[in-house]
Write a protein that binds this DNA or RNA. Structure first.
Lengths: 223, 223
DNA sequence: TTGGGTTCGTTAGAAGTTATAACCCAAGTT
DNA sequence: AACTTGGGTTATAACTTCTAACGAACCCAA
C-alpha cells in the first residue's frame, strides 16, 4: 500500500528494479496457485518457469533456491495474516472479531495456513524478520486479551507465566491475559487445523458451530 | 503380538512369506528413521534400498509406490497411537492418563504425530481401514469422557451434537460427553501441535505446564 | 529328476526434479 | 564508444520415482 502513494514524485526505482520486482511477484503468484491446489511439497520451480514462458534455470535469477522461494511465501503468509488480524481489530480490540478474521483467513487458503502452522520441516529455522511478524501477531492478540475483563480465577499456570513473560515483550498485559492469549491461540488452532485437514469431514456436525462454541468458552472469561 | 503365540504349531506361512514380511518390516524401519530426522517429504525409496543393500527398483516388489509406503506408515502410526491410548486406559477410563499417554506418544516421534495430524496433502484420502482405526481411537476417548461426571452446563453446541452423533457410532455417551471428547481432542492437539512444531521455542514458558493447565481445565468439567 | 511357474533381484532407461556452469546479448553506466 | 551488470539461454550433473526387460533362484508337481 505504501508503494501506491499518490505522489507525483516518480517511483525512484530503476526500470530494472521495477521489472525484477514484477517478475518476482508473478513467480510468487504461480507458486501460490500450485500450493493451493497441490500443497507446498509439490511446488515445482520448473513448472512455474514454464508457465511464465521462460525456461528452467532463468528462475534462479530471482530466487536462489526452492527453499528461498518457500521462505518468501511463508513471509508473505505471515504478513497477510498479521495484516488481516490487525485490520479486524481497528474498530476495537475484540477477541470475537479476531477469531472470525482468523477463521476466514485460514479457510480462504488452507494450504497457506498450513504453511505457517502445519508440519514443520525438521531442519528449518525461520529468518529473523519472520519471527518479528509473528510477534506482531501476538501483540494484536495480547491487545484484545487485555481488553477483556480479567474475571478468570487465578490459575497456577498464570503464575508460571508471571515469571516467563519475556515473549510478551514490553506489553503491559497481566499474566492472566497472557494465559488467555495462549489459550485463544492453541484452542482455535486446534479446531481450525483439524477442520482444514479434513478430520471432521463425514463426522456430521458443523465445524463452524464447534469453532463458535470454543470461542464462546474463551470469551466467557473462564481462562 | 498375536503372531508371537507360544504355539508349538509352526508358523503356517511359507518361508517366502516370512522373508517377504521381514523385508517389508525392514523397509518400514528405515523409512521411519528417515521420517524422524528429515520429515515425510524427504523420504527417498532409493536411499532406503541402498541402505538395505539392494539396488533401487527392487524395493517396488514390496511397495507398489512411494505413496503406498507412506500410507502403510500412516496406518502403522494410527495403530500405534490406538494401541498406546487403549493400553493407557486399561486400569480405568481416565482422561488425565489418556492425555498423558497422548503427549508421550507424540513427543516420542513428532514427525509420526504429524503424519496423522499434520499438513494434509490435497488429493489424498485415507483408505477405509485407517478410518476404522481412527474411530477406534475416538471410541476409547468417548469411553473416558462418559466416565467423567456430566456437570457441564448444557451448551448450545451439545444440542447440535444431539442431532449429529452419527460419528459416535452406537456409543451410549450423552451429547455432553461427545462435546467433551471433541474439546479434549482439539484443545490438546492445539497445544501439542504448536509445541511440536516449535512455535513455543524461545518463548520462555514450559509447554508441559501449559498442556497440564489445558488438561486441568478440561477435567474441571466446564465443557 | 526333470520340468514349469512364481518371485526376487538385477540393469537400462524414461521422465521428472533442483541446481550449477558457461555463454550470449541487451540494457545501463562511465 | 567501451565496459559492466543482469536476464536469458542451453548443457549438464546428480538426484528422484517408476517401468521394462531379463536372469536366476526357489517351490512344486509330474
Amino acid at each position: 500500500m505504501a508503494k501506491a502513494d499518490a505522489d507525483v514524485e516518480t517511483d525512484t526505482r530503476t526500470p530494472r528494479e521495477r521489472y525484477r520486482a514484477q517478475v518476482r511477484a508473478e513467480i510468487k503468484e504461480r507458486a501460490w496457485e500450485q500450493i493451493a491446489t497441490a500443497g507446498a511439497s509439490a511446488l515445482s520451480l520448473n513448472a512455474i518457469a514454464k508457465q511464465l514462458g521462460m525456461s528452467g534455470p532463468a528462475l534462479y535469477r530471482y530466487f536462489a533456491s526452492r527453499d528461498e522461494l518457500i521462505t518468501e511465501l511463508i513471509r508473505e503468509a505471515y504478513r497477510s495474516l498479521a495484516e488481516t488480524l490487525r485490520a479486524s481489530s481497528t474498530t476495537g480490540a475484540d477477541l470475537a472479531e479476531l477469531a472470525h478474521a482468523l477463521r476466514g483467513w485460514a479457510m480462504e487458503d488452507p494450504q497457506r495456513y498450513f504453511l505457517i502452522y502445519g508440519t514443520p520441516v525438521p531442519g528449518y529455522h525461520a529468518p529473523e524478520d519472520i519471527t518479528g511478524i509473528a510477534s506482531e501477531i501476538m501483540r494484536t492478540l495480547l491487545d484484545a486479551c487485555t481488553a477483556l475483563a480479567p474475571d478468570a480465577p487465578a490459575a497456577p499456570f498464570s503464575a508460571h507465566l508471571e515469571d516467563h513473560r519475556d515473549w510478551a515483550g514490553d506489553h503491559p498485559a497481566p499474566a492472566a491475559a497472557l494465559h488467555r492469549a495462549l489459550a485463544f491461540w492453541t484452542r482455535l488452532h486446534g479446531v481450525l487445523s483439524l477442520e482444514l485437514a479434513g478430520h471432521f469431514t463425514d463426522m456430521g456436525f458443523d465445524p463452524a458451530l464447534f469453532f463458535a462454541a470454543e470461542l464462546d468458552d474463551l470469551l466467557s472469561g473462564r481462562v
